[in-house]
Design a protein around this nucleic acid. Structure first.
Length: 195
DNA sequence: GTGATGATTTAA
DNA sequence: TAAATCATCACT
């Protein structure tokens, strides 16, 4: 697929708002093909979501498993369409979209993007020219889009970080596999990728 | 206060 | 394959 500049189809795309209309697994698939946009320190960067993972409330690998609230996972219990950002391995941020009923504790981890806009800024932030290496990992895409802990608990219906409708994918264009980097809950096929 | 751990990335 | 690197969490 060719990279598309923001000034054509994206400028006419509408902001996705129906976070509370989907259960978490549906939202994980629904977000594939949409575009995550950040306006950070005066720069717009954006990429199409190509990989997601679902974290359900009754799933042992979920930060909110057993309805356990901690300082870190507080955002997961907020309403669908809230950003949940956490810091891990002493150096990386991961970005999630809170989903499901408010108070339930579910989210969709955004694992990979196809860079679409602000690629030079992403290259600067990531310290690499290699476009394929800009957003192909949860920590990488956060660095590329300037997503840090200040975006935790932000509304994704605002102007700083939001999602645009873009490409509508069908079920047979999505593949499901076990999630990456977890020790529990490997039996669930909760990782979704664009074929 | 202490110690183990982690939804990762990078370089070797 | 292993090191980097530290906030977060549970608690000897």
């Amino acid at each position: 697929m060719e990279l598309t500049p923001l000034n054509t189809s994206l400028s006419r795309a509408s902001k996705f708002k129906d976070y509370d209309k989907y259960d978490t697994l549906s939202l994980s698939k629904c977000l594939l093909g949409k575009v995550l946009v950040s306006c950070h320190e005066g720069h717009i960067t954006a990429g199409m979501i190509t990989e997601t993972e679902a974290y359900l409330h009754d799933d042992p690998s979920c930060h909110a498993y057993m309805n356990k609230k901690t300082n870190r996972n507080e955002a997961m219990f907020m309403k669908a369409g809230t950003g949940y950002v956490y810091f891990i391995y002493g150096m990386h941020y991961c970005f999630n979209v809170v989903s499901g009923e408010e108070g339930l504790g579910e989210a969709v981890l955004i694992r990979s993007l196809m860079p679409l806009y602000g690629i030079e800024i992403m290259q600067q932030r990531r310290s690499t020219q290699n476009t394929k290496q800009l957003c192909n990992g949860p920590g990488k895409l956060c660095q590329a889009l300037g997503i840090d802990i200040s975006y935790n608990k932000c509304s994704l219906q605002g102007d700083a970080l939001y999602i645009l409708d873009y490409i509508q994918l069908s079920e047979n264009e999505i593949i499901s596999t076990p999630r990456i980097g977890i020790s529990k809950g490997r039996e669930f096929l909760y990782r979704f990728c664009v074929k």
